[in-house]
Amino acid sequence: MTLNILRIDASVRREGSVSRELNDKVIDRFAAAGDVAVTKRDLITPLPLIDETWIGATFTDPEDRTDEQTRALELSDDLIAELQAADTLVIGLPIYNFAIPSGLKAWIDLVSRRGVTFRYTESGPVGLLTGKRAIVTVASGGTEVGSDIDFATGYLRHALAFIGITDVLFVKADRLAIDAEATLKAAEAAVAELPLAA
C-alpha cells in the first residue's frame, strides 16, 4: 500500500537548510520501509496573502460566487486537495524570530477554510481533515523548542488540530548556534526512531 506524503518546506534557504535536510531524512526513512508517493510544496516560492476578495469568497456559497471569487480560491482549492490526498505531512519548520516563517503562515491561512477543512458547531470548531498525521522537523539557532520564547511549535500544533490533524510529532534541531553537532546528532537519532505507522 502506498503512503501518500505531502512534504512542505518553509525555509527561505535552498542550501544549508537544516529543516530541509531533516525532511530529506524523514522521507528517506519512509521510502526505505515501503512504497511512498511524495507531493512537494516548497514555500520558498511565495504564496499570495489572503485579501478582501478571498475572504468574501470563502463566506459566499459556491453556487453564488462570482468568477472573480472563484478564481481567488483556485490556489486554496489546490493546496487543500494536496492535504486531502495525503496520509502524512512532513513539514520543515525553521523558527524565525521566535515564530513560524511568513510563507508557512500564508499556507495555513489558505488551507483553513470554513466548511472545507473545518466547521463550526455549538461546542466549537471541528477539524475535517482527520485520520492524518504530521511530522514536523524544527530548526532554530537559539530558540529552544517548548520554551517560553517558542511561539512556533505550539501555534503550528494548534493550527493543524484546528483542521483536524491532531497526531503531530516534532523532530527538533533547536539551539543550533550553541551546539550544532550534538543537536544534529540528536535530531537524526529521533528520525531513526520515528514510528512508521500512525
Rank of each mutant, 00 (worst) to 15 (best):
E21P: 00
T153D: 05
A161L: 06
G142W: 03
E74V: 05
Q69E: 15
H158D: 11
F162E: 08
G124C: 13
D78C: 03
I100V: 10
R119Q: 14
P195W: 08
A173Q: 04
A81T: 09
Q69H: 09
G103M: 01
A192D: 06
D28V: 00
S147L: 09
L156N: 10
G141Q: 05
D51P: 08
D174L: 02
L49P: 02
V111L: 12
E63P: 02
A161F: 02
I95Y: 00
V168L: 06
A10D: 09
R7E: 12
D67P: 11
A192E: 05
M1F: 03
P94T: 12
V38S: 08
V191E: 10
Y155C: 13
G16I: 12
E144D: 01
I149C: 09
G141E: 04
T166L: 05
L110I: 00
F118I: 05
L75D: 09
I108T: 02
V191K: 11
A187N: 00
T2V: 04
R29E: 07
V90M: 02
A177M: 11
V12Q: 04
D9H: 06
V36T: 15
V145C: 10
A37D: 07
W107N: 02
P195V: 09
A57I: 05
D167W: 02
R175L: 09
E15C: 05
A190G: 01
T39G: 02
A190D: 09
D150W: 06
A182S: 15
D28E: 12
S140Y: 02
K185C: 03
V12F: 04
G56S: 06
S102M: 08
K185E: 14
D61Y: 13
T45C: 00
D51F: 04
P48T: 12
P62Q: 04
L79C: 08
V111I: 15
L49H: 15
R175V: 10
A152V: 00
A187D: 00
G164R: 07
T39M: 08
L22W: 15
M1H: 06
R133K: 13
V26Y: 04
